Simulated assay, not measured.
Amino acid sequence: MEFNIKQNTLEKRPYRSFSFWEEKILNEENLWEGYFDNKEITNTSKVIYTGIFDLEKNILQCGWAAYPCGYSLLGFLQHVFLPTSFFTWFDRKSDGFLIPISDFDTVINETLKYNDSNMDLTSLNSMKNSYDFLNNFWDCDSESLNQKLKSFSKKFNATWNNIPNQRLFIEIFDDPCDIFNFVKDSISWESKEFIEEDISMSLEALKFACDNAVEEPLLSRRLIDILNTNAPILF
């Protein structure tokens, strides 16, 4: 028990700190696509597919990324994904995709200061509640954290991924094997031939890559690149 507590504490560091993520943003590290800290996929990795879409602001930011553990993903969601989502959704004066270099409370205050006062307060409070919801996860062990992150993504998507011209979403995969069905189901209205044309590879090849991403060293370093090249937009 003592070992597990120490191990979880080590896993959390330094992901809980905003300053850690601030440095990543300032260094222009790509936190939305690719391999976080250049770490290949292992059996503790979390693969994510995120999307921020705003037709009016001409924003379409979506992509695949791999994070080494649940705590690193939690830090990204709390300190990067949610502040960026909030700013994109509620700030109607700036154009283009911008990642705030501020903590969440500052992003809220600055956005409210420079935008109209007739914001949808229900939606605004929903986003704030999402941040508080995530902040409570830091005391979880790895197993319960995985379950709570899945619950969070499901609830978040139900709220923010249902408006045609403005969407936010995140999909979390504990096992790369689950990615194949997600990709296939996302474009299931097409025939097999059209799906394979869309993803520029055979379904069999995609399934093999997903099923073997943990065990095969080459695929553990290539799967995310394959997905970002062949299946970047699935909505």
Score class of each variant (00 low, 15 high):
118 N>I: 07
113 K>A: 15
129 N>P: 01
128 K>E: 11
120 D>I: 02
128 K>V: 15
100 P>T: 03
99 I>W: 02
111 T>W: 00
114 Y>F: 13
96 G>D: 01
119 M>G: 04
115 N>D: 09
127 M>G: 01
134 L>T: 01
93 K>F: 04
114 Y>G: 06
130 S>I: 01
108 I>S: 00
93 K>E: 11
96 G>T: 03
125 N>C: 06
132 D>K: 13
124 L>W: 03
115 N>Q: 05
122 T>D: 10
120 D>N: 15
99 I>E: 05
95 D>A: 12
93 K>A: 08
133 F>L: 14
134 L>S: 04
99 I>Q: 07
121 L>G: 05
132 D>L: 13
109 N>K: 15
103 D>P: 03
105 D>R: 03
99 I>H: 04
113 K>C: 06
125 N>D: 10
93 K>L: 12
109 N>V: 08
119 M>R: 12
112 L>C: 10
105 D>Y: 06
129 N>A: 15
93 K>I: 13
128 K>R: 15
126 S>Q: 11
105 D>N: 14
111 T>D: 01
117 S>F: 08
128 K>N: 09
108 I>T: 01
118 N>Y: 09
111 T>M: 01
113 K>Q: 12
115 N>M: 04
101 I>K: 15
128 K>D: 05
126 S>T: 13
126 S>K: 13
116 D>E: 10
132 D>Y: 10
98 L>R: 14
104 F>W: 01
100 P>Y: 02
118 N>G: 04
95 D>T: 11
120 D>S: 13
98 L>A: 08
128 K>C: 14
103 D>R: 07
112 L>Y: 05
125 N>I: 01
109 N>F: 06
128 K>S: 11
123 S>K: 15
95 D>G: 07
96 G>P: 02
103 D>A: 07
124 L>Q: 08
122 T>K: 13
121 L>E: 10
131 Y>S: 09
111 T>Y: 00
116 D>L: 11
104 F>I: 01
118 N>M: 08
113 K>W: 05
102 S>A: 15
105 D>L: 08
117 S>Y: 07
121 L>Y: 09
124 L>E: 06
133 F>V: 05
